[in-house]
Simulated assay, not measured.
Amino acid sequence: MEERTIHMELCSSRKQKPESSQLEFGKVFTDHMFIMDYSDELGWHDPRIVPYQPLSIDPSAMVFHYGQSVFEGLKAYITPEGDAQLFRPEKNFHRLNRSNQRLCIPPIDEEFGIKAIQQLIALEKDWIPTAEGTSLYIRPFIISTEPYLGVAPSRHYKFIVILSPVGAYYKEGINPIKIAVENQYVRTVVGGTGEAKTGGNYASSLKAQEDVAKKGFAQVLWLDGVERKYIEEVGSMNVFFKINGEVVTPALNGSILEGVTRNSVNQLLKHWNIPVEERAISMEEVYEAYKNGTLEEAFGAGTAAVISPIGQLAWNDEDLVINNGETGDLSKRLYDTLTGIQYGRRDDPFGWVVKVDDSNIHLKASV
């Protein structure tokens, strides 16, 4: 990797930090952010940490008109010893570059991207909340900035990282949530952009989410976009079902996002010798398992919520109450193990944790 210096411009005054008990998801942002520019002539260049501020972008920037953008989401945590650490950031940057490839965006040097995040986290370490269930959410994203009203890949981009102290994603926490199976709208199809983390996928999900929220549901369960038969994701999370002692999760088929938490759950289950299978699973199969009493648990898995148990599925005017609407033993074990590793309260046998070195950040910041 070419050694590049990240220039720093510090803010003149610091914001007041919110109380941990008042934190919502994605509403408050830290004092600084990271920016790096791209042009066809210079490649990725001018990496810098600057005060958090509005962007100045031409109204004809291509991102506004053709949606060429990608993003990621990961978190920083404070350990009982007061250290800051990340959870599997290399997986996020692998996925970012897969999204880049699908959206015709130039790849990011993954090692340098992690270095940039570590330096930003080190500078903003006192923004990482310490109350139970809180963390510092990290949002890297890339937008096309070329001023041009033509349908073609942009020749200019910005890579930006912003940080937000957050509480629990769902107010229900680890308690089970109610999910509605979506039969009208689809999230994406094989050959589309479902396996990329791009904003359009989420924009297309809003209508279904809005409709079910009015009926008291927390999220929707997405079915495939062709046959409307096979389960894909739950909201913006990957989904798992425990049926007759075996865990099943939809196989990555080109329209499902490969989640970092999904990968971690699969590894943990294999480590515990719990049978887990990645394959196509239909809603009809889940319904039959419910009817014959072998549907033991269901849960979503994602960075924001970690593990989100599903207590009820509404499908074809019938309510499927799973595990008496209570959090299952496996869901709880997965949640406790993953968060224990993330917060440094449990051993990390997989080498998932990356410590943030802040020993020389104050020297750099004072230059």
Rank of each mutant, 00 (worst) to 15 (best):
I243P: 07
S331C: 04
E288N: 14
N100T: 10
A305D: 04
I177H: 02
A168K: 15
K355Y: 04
Y66T: 07
Y148N: 15
H362E: 14
G150T: 08
V161W: 02
V234D: 07
A116L: 07
V248A: 03
V356W: 00
Q119Y: 00
G216W: 08
I174G: 08
A196P: 07
G254Y: 10
N292K: 15
L123F: 09
Q184D: 14
L10I: 12
E195W: 10
Q119C: 01
D37R: 14
M1N: 12
F112D: 01
F25C: 10
D83C: 07
L96T: 11
I114F: 00
L269T: 00
V321M: 06
G328D: 03
A76L: 00
L268M: 11
H94N: 12
Y335M: 04
M1S: 15
A131L: 06
E24H: 14
P140Q: 10
V166P: 08
G192P: 09
G351L: 08
Q342F: 02
P129Y: 09
I174A: 09
E41Q: 15
H32I: 05
V286E: 08
I341G: 06
G216F: 05
F217V: 04
H156D: 14
K27V: 13
E326T: 13
V190N: 10
G300S: 03
G133H: 06
P165L: 13
N244W: 02
N266S: 11
M283G: 11
L120P: 11
N360Q: 14
A298M: 15
N273G: 03
I322M: 03
K75T: 11
M8I: 15
L96V: 10
V166Q: 09
N273H: 15
I105W: 01
S308E: 06
S39Y: 04
D348L: 03
Y287L: 14
